[in-house]
């Protein structure tokens, strides 16, 4: 029960910020995919940078656990390509579809119904996929610091600087 309340409150805050950042709209999502408006890239990368620093900081003090998913090349590459096709057609992603509906974008509802159908379809295909795609290129639960054999605090500044340079470039281009 406590976890459900945490979930609701966290979602309230996140949904509020997604709406304030104006990233829930179809026009913003398609704008990014058409390389015309990078608002969602600015939002996402800013979130990732803060999240990366914060989580690793707490991790160093043993206060949080990392949640590292297995890197399996087959499903990740194929899944990403399929996701991209669907995202381009729908114009909302799974999380933002709920927020888009919240700010009155009724077409998100079709997408939500479609995503439930897609999840059902995936559940049907799962036993087959498990024996095929999921066996292609399983690298296990790896991270960049681990693969490169260096401390994460050497990599984090590289990502921060790269993001800041990208932001500067986007602003210069007016995207």
């Amino acid at each position: 029960m406590k976890m459900l309340v945490y979930g609701l409150v966290t979602g309230l805050l996140f949904g509020f910020l997604l709406q304030k950042g104006r990233v829930l709209r179809y026009d913003k999502q398609l704008g990014a995919l058409r390389l015309q408006d990078m608002t969602i890239v600015k939002f996402m990368l800013s979130s990732v940078i803060v999240g990366m620093i914060g989580v690793y900081f707490l991790y160093d003090f043993g206060l949080v656990k990392l949640s590292i998913k297995a890197t399996i090349l087959g499903p990740v590459i194929l899944g990403a390509l399929i996701f991209g096709v669907g995202w381009g057609l729908l114009g909302y992603c799974p999380g933002t579809s709920m927020g888009a509906l919240g700010e009155g974008r009724l077409d998100a509802l079709w997408g939500i119904l479609g995503m439930i159908a897609g999840a059902a379809l995936f559940a049907e295909a799962y036993p087959f996929l498990l024996q095929t795609v999921y066996t292609w290129g399983d690298l296990g639960r790896i991270t960049l610091p681990q693969v490169l054999g260096i401390n994460h605090w050497f990599l984090i500044p590289v990502f921060v600087v790269a993001a800041l340079l990208l932001f500067r470039w986007l602003e210069k281009k007016g995207l």
Binding site: G79, G86, Y92, G111, M115, A117, G118
Partner: peptide, 17 residues
């Protein structure tokens, strides 16, 4: 939107996203 949603979700689940 419906078809796009179905495709997007299939891909997202496949990649464990």
């Amino acid at each position: 939107a419906f078809v796009g949603g179905a495709i997007a979700m299939f891909g997202a689940r496949l990649a464990d996203g």
